[in-house]
Design a protein around this nucleic acid. Structure first.
Length: 590
DNA sequence: GATGCCTGCCC
DNA sequence: ATTCTGC
DNA sequence: GCAGAATGGGCAGGCATC
């Protein structure tokens, strides 16, 4: 099949928002392919050339792609960037440049296989000169392909196909290809969950039918898609939703799935990256403490201070995710793994077994020790007790709690109410919001292009410096109507240059600056130390004296979102730097 | 070797 | 991560 | 309620350049 033919299908898909229709069109597309092509197509639709658990990344995003478009079409990079700002989509950008009369002929016969192979080479290129190489490969593709194909070939590496469907709909459509209905989706999904390789799944279905997936079972060494939790904001709702449930603390670390066979252990991140070499302490812990020949367990890894026994904030924990200096960091910032799931053990899959059974089996196979701790849990049947546990968790400095449905299966890859997270920041206390002033905004991408705004920069006031200093950009919490409204209001306040009394890092520069008059109430989970936000930040000369380094990091907001507009407040009444510093200090001692 | 920009991946 | 929206 | 698409802060690491 030609890539052009695929592009025509993608255009049809992009034009409809109806998921049933999308499913049908995809099935129609598959019918035109052979077993190899369907694998490549499904893989490319994920914006990749290999499954997540293979360490093959494009290493190409917006900036590199802009350079590739410039080189491929012989256009100034600044012009490409300008058009991108306007269109909010690099696919549309390249297509519209390509549609301008240029006299350059393009081939129409590139096959999907050829395009896939170029993208694969691009993704596996590395080392000195590799950026030039990637730009060259991408540029040649853009030069060779027709305008419509260019739209999609550019969107694949940057992972923004924007077709209105993703993995789950692809699984539906594979069912549709075989049966003309979605009835095989559960079977296909079950296989995909334990072998998250869409190329394998789709090719197998095409060549062997649904029977081909019968042998796909959890396997040590192949990561299983991780379950995620829905959110709720109070104990009563949780009990009403799932009844009697198990409550566990919610730690602020990162997810780890551990695979053990004999004395060999592999670790995977939530995104299925193989992270075995990064965490030798967890590997040793699993070998020592997990009493099963084969097992797949899951938990949250959190760093702690070995001297005080206190758990460390996320910003320190995450430093353990590294490629170099591993042993030194492991000594300085050791990890504990709070195990909360058993997914597989010695030939038996626990994915479809109720939580209580997974949990009791987990307790049996994890021996007491220093590194792997089975997560605490309490089964509760009433909201009052749930709230008590939640309050206790919060006072211990934890993020909140997780509630797990007692008879719920492990819903690999999906987010549903078998797991519910109840976080501190949902509780809606005034202490978690601050008032800020809008300093500028950026043009949006995709859907937000139409609004002319995608996010806005906010700051607090430092009455000592008499400057506005930044704490976050806001890109969520507004309805479509509110986006349109704030854009209109902002444009009335537009100024040509960044005002003198704005203290903004280069990284946070905005497309449009405005007079500081719009006041917003912002919710966040936490105040963190920031290298790029300027609230309270102090700089010092760098070693060479030619640049500046951060001496005291600024303050910023973690998971910032708009709570509401505060038209009743004046800009001079927003939170001051002094108040923000106080809030930061207070959160340390809860 | 220092710096800056960019990317991918944690949340 | 959070949030909004079409189906 | 699911699935998808907008968007956040901030960490390490790769590569290019000064």
């Amino acid at each position: 099949m030609t890539f052009k033919r695929l592009a025509e299908y993608l255009q049809r898909l992009e034009e409809t928002t109806l998921r049933n229709k999308i499913t049908e069109i995809l099935a129609e597309l598959y019918k035109e392919t052979n077993g190899e092509e369907i694998g490549m197509i499904c893989q490319l639709l994920q914006g990749r050339v290999a499954p997540l658990y293979e360490a093959i990344e494009f290493g190409v995003a917006d900036k590199m792609m802009i350079r590739a478009i410039g080189q491929g079409l012989n256009v100034e990079i600044t012009d490409v960037a300008a058009l991108f700002r306007k269109t909010g989509d690099l696919g549309i950008t390249v297509e519209s440049i390509k549609n301008q009369p240029s006299g350059i002929k393009y081939k129409e016969r590139n096959t999907i296989t050829e395009v896939y192979e170029v993208l694969f080479r691009l993704a596996t290129s590395g080392g000195e000169g590799s950026q030039e190489e990637k730009i060259k490969l991408m540029g040649e593709l853009i030069k060779d392909l027709d305008p419509l194909s260019c739209r999609y070939v550019v969107r694949i590496p940057i992972g923004r196909l924007r077709l209105g469907f993703s993995d789950m709909t692809v699984l539906d459509s594979l069912s549709w290809m075989i049966k003309g209905t979605k009835e095989l989706r559960p079977t296909i999904e079950k296989a995909y969950n334990v072998r998250p390789d869409i190329s394998f799944i789709s090719s197998t279905l095409k060549e062997k039918g649904i029977k081909g997936l019968a042998q796909v079972k959890p396997q040590v060494g192949t990561p299983i898609l991780m379950a995620r939790a829905e959110r709720m904001t109070n104990g009563a709702d949780i009990i009403e939703k799932i009844g009697k449930c198990a409550i566990e603390p919610k730690y602020d670390g990162f997810r780890v799935q551990g695979h053990k066979r004999g004395n060999k252990v592999e670790l995977f991140s939530r995104n299925l990256e193989n992270v075995t070499l990064m965490y030798p302490d967890i590997v040793k812990g699993i070998i020592k403490q997990v009493k099963a020949n084969e097992a797949i367990i899951e938990g949250e890894a959190v760093a702690f201070n070995p001297n005080t026994g206190e758990y460390l904030p996320f910003q320190e924990t995450v430093q353990r995710k590294r490629k170099y200096n591993i042993e030194a960091y492991a000594r300085e910032i050791p990890l504990k793994l709070f195990a909360f799931e058993l997914l597989y053990r010695d030939g038996i899959s626990y994915l479809g077994k109720p939580f209580e059974e997974r949990r009791s089996e987990l307790e049996k196979i994890v021996a007491k020790g220093d590194t792997i701790l089975v997560s605490q849990e309490e089964v509760v049947g009433d909201a009052k007790r749930l709230e008590e546990i939640f309050q206790d968790a919060v006072s211990r400095g934890l993020e909140g709690v997780m509630a797990k449905k007692l008879d719920g299966i492990y819903r690999a890859g999906s987010r549903d109410f078998n797991w519910i997270k109840y976080k501190r920041s949902y509780a809606g206390k005034l202490a978690d919001t601050i008032d800020c002033v809008v300093l500028g905004y950026d043009y949006g991408q995709g859907k937000r292009t139409g609004f002319g705004i995608g996010d806005f920069l906010i700051g607090v006031y430092d009455d000592k410096d008499e400057k506005f200093q930044t704490v976050a950009k806001i890109g969520t919490g507004l309805t479509d109507e509110e986006w349109k409204k704030i854009k209109l209001r902002s444009d009335k306040l537009k100024v040509k240059n960044k005002p003198e009394n704005y203290d903004v890092d280069k990284m946070m520069e905005c497309d449009v600056w405005i007079t500081p008059l719009i006041v917003v109430e912002i919710r966040a989970d936490e105040i963190t130390r920031s290298p790029v936000h300027t609230a309270g930040r102090v700089m010092k000369p760098s070693i060479s004296g030619k640049a500046f380094d951060v001496e005291v990091a600024g303050l910023a907001l973690r998971f910032p979102r708009l709570e509401r507009f505060r038209d009743d407040k004046k800009p001079m009444e927003v939170t001051t730097l002094k108040e923000l510093k106080k809030l930061y200090e207070m959160q340390g001692k809860k």
